[in-house]
Design a protein around this nucleic acid. Structure first.
Length: 559
RNA sequence: GGGCCUGUAGCCUAGCCUGGAAGGGCGUCUGGCUUCUAACCAGAAGAUCCAGGGUUCGAAUCCCUGCAGGCCCGCCA
């Protein structure tokens, strides 16, 4: 009989409940992932009814159940009756399951998902605060794909409005900086144009005139901002590429004006019965909608009848749902209200609504990250630094310079991603370069190193993975490793459930750590259990590789 | 004024949805490389789980009230 761990636990638990019933015992709560053992029966609640102390109940329970099939032993700690399963019996079955090449992957789903991430305004290089978005977005998309969804990622390019017009004006009229990276060079144009906008009425009116042309659908003006945004974006895209997080497609806001879909939105929203008008500008009246704050009017046109950012966002989402069944947005927490408003509008238009994953902002020690105040750590600089630090660590390793360069890139970028991903998105964090550069313990290099050890063993073994038979008792660290591997599919499932990507790094660390314990205790090559242990190494390696891949981290075979 | 999020050892963090025995990591101290890779491993010290109240046999977890920090409340994007 083949069974995975879930099924084994289920069978044991139903046997336990059967025994409770037969003996007229109250049904006691059961912890399926206890601190000690594989299953734990919590005996506090039965105490009163049975007129016994919780400890006595636990002892009693342990005597009642110890000969259930698959239970190897039971031991009582306080009021917990802990059960250890018979891993000698189970491991072959569980292993057969783990050995399947699709182990952990979800079955292919019918739904297609458009995952929008990053969508930073094309006004200059990414800073670390913004970098949380592509890293989370890219990894969540990998996670959802692993689980069986068809996922496509998209970057929404805000190339209309004042900022975009200012960028276009700046690129046309000012000289850039001297960096050889496009976005770092062009951001100087934008800075100067922004300054001029503030101090020079003439330039201000030029930019605002351009803005109006853009919003009214003037083709030439639209092409101009679109091209300017493209220029800036080309530099930003190369940062994303280095981060291993480039989007599959880029959607230009300007196209929504160009193709008239914004006007369709305005027309439809005007038919809504919560639509009202004030001095020529139209809005949805939100009174009674339980939306936060002082402002109960959600404007979707200016008094000149032209669209606002939100209006175009509505059009964008309608567009998304013509292409995909579902939409998921990765957004900074500052977009929460905005997204509520969007949802209300979509509801008025009878449209589907997107799911959202919000993340908190990244601070620097001492306060907010702000480009304007010059308190800023650029993503590009951070990647250089962390890759440099990784290269430094490889100094003594016997490898060609080129190999070291490639490897340090993987390690550095992996560390950066891991550090961002291991924290719950809704938790704000203060970005410390020192912490980011500290790459031991719960980090990408720890996992990568474990993976390299696995590869090394298999490389030395040199033959194809053998069949195995259990010839002696498993040692504790082997069981622990199997236990951890057995938890992988559940881990993926719960991460998908809540879009909780931080669960994956957590698992990666556990698996790596358990493997390192196994490595310490168990000689693989040349041992009497060689065949089994090669299998253990092989499956751990595959799971670790997959898990790291979800995080967008490349698992090296040597380091 | 209002809404949302966060608060766990010196520092960072998991656990909170679905209540049951507080997990990791950094840093500190001690020890381990002629043995499949020491970016590793073992051991030690370190926690009024922000505060107070409630529900419960049982609360870091659920409810209420505070406190502290973040974000937001424009005919900007």
């Amino acid at each position: 009989m083949s069974r995975n761990l879930e099924e084994a636990k289920f069978s044991v638990i139903s046997d336990i409940n059967k025994i409770f019933k037969e003996n007229n015992y109250p049904i006691l709560p059961i912890d399926e992932n206890p601190i000690q053992g594989d299953i734990s029966i919590i005996c506090f609640p039965g105490a009163q009814a049975l007129k016994k102390s919780p400890q006595e109940v636990a002892k009693n329970v342990s005597e009642m159940i110890y000969d259930i099939e698959l239970i190897k032993e039971t031991f009582v700690v306080k009021a917990f009756c802990n059960i250890v399963l018979d891993w000698e019996l189970l491991s072959e079955d569980i292993f057969a399951d783990i050995n399947l090449s699709e182990y952990g992957r979800g079955v292919s789903k019918a739904n297609s998902i458009l995952l929008e991430h990053t969508s930073a305004n094309a006004t200059g290089p990414f800073h670390m605060g913004r970098a949380r978005n592509p890293i989370i977005g890219d990894s969540v998309s990998r996670l959802l794909k692993y689980y069986g969804y068809k996922v496509s990622t998209e970057y929404y390019v805000n190339d209309t409005g004042r900022q975009a017009a200012t960028v276009a004006y700046g690129i046309k009229n000012f000289k850039g900086g001297d960096s050889n990276k496009q976005d770092h060079r062009l951001v100087e144009c934008y800075r100067q144009a922004s300054e001029a906008l503030k101090s020079d009425e003439n330039i201000k009116s030029k930019i605002y005139k351009k803005m109006e042309l853009i919003e009214s659908g003037d083709k030439e003006a639209l092409m101009e901002v679109k091209e300017a945004a493209e220029m800036m974006l080309s530099g930003m895209k190369s940062s994303l590429k280095r981060l291993n997080a480039e989007a599959d497609s880029y959607f230009h806001e300007s196209d929504l004006i160009l193709d008239g879909s914004v006007n369709v939105v305005i027309k439809s929203l005007k038919k809504s019965n919560i639509c009202a008008e004030e001095k020529g500008a139209f809005y949805l009246n939100l009174e009674g909608k339980n939306i936060a704050g002082r402002n109960q009017k959600f404007f979707f046109t200016r008094n000149n009848g032209l669209s606002l950012y939100t209006t175009r966002d509505i059009a964008y989402h309608l567009n998304k749902f013509t292409r995909f069944n579902k939409a998921l947005n990765i957004l900074g927490e500052d977009h929460k209200l905005q997204s509520n408003l969007l949802n209300i509008a979509l509801e008025e238009l009878d449209s589907n609504k997107p799911d959202n994953l919000f993340y908190s902002f990244v601070n620097l020690p001492g306060g907010k990250m702000s480009t304007r105040a010059g308190r800023v750590v650029y993503l590009d600089d951070m990647m250089d630094q962390i890759v440099g630090a990784s290269l430094e660590r490889l100094k003594e390793v016997d490898m060609s310079d080129n190999q070291k360069r490639l490897l340090s890139e993987k390690i550095g970028i992996g560390s950066l991603r891991y550090n961002v991903l291991k924290v719950q998105p809704e938790k704000g964090f203060t970005f410390s370069i020192d912490d980011a550069l500290s790459i031991q313990g719960d980090s990408a290099p720890f996992a990568m190193y474990s993976h390299a050890r696995m590869s090394s063993i298999l490389r030395k073994y040199g033959e194809s993975i053998p069949d195995f038979k259990l010839e002696s008792d498993l040692v504790e660290s082997e069981i622990e490793l199997i236990r951890t591997m057995a938890r992988w599919p559940k881990t993926v499932e719960s991460a998908v459930d809540k879009f909780a990507i931080h669960i994956i790094p957590n698992y990666v660390h556990q698996l790596s750590s358990k493997f390192n314990n196994f490595y310490r205790d168990c000689k693989v090559i040349g041992d009497t259990n060689e065949a089994l242990r090669i299998n253990l190494v092989n499956t751990s390696k595959r799971i670790l590789f997959d898990a790291l891949d979800i995080l967008g981290i490349e698992a090296p075979d040597r380091m």
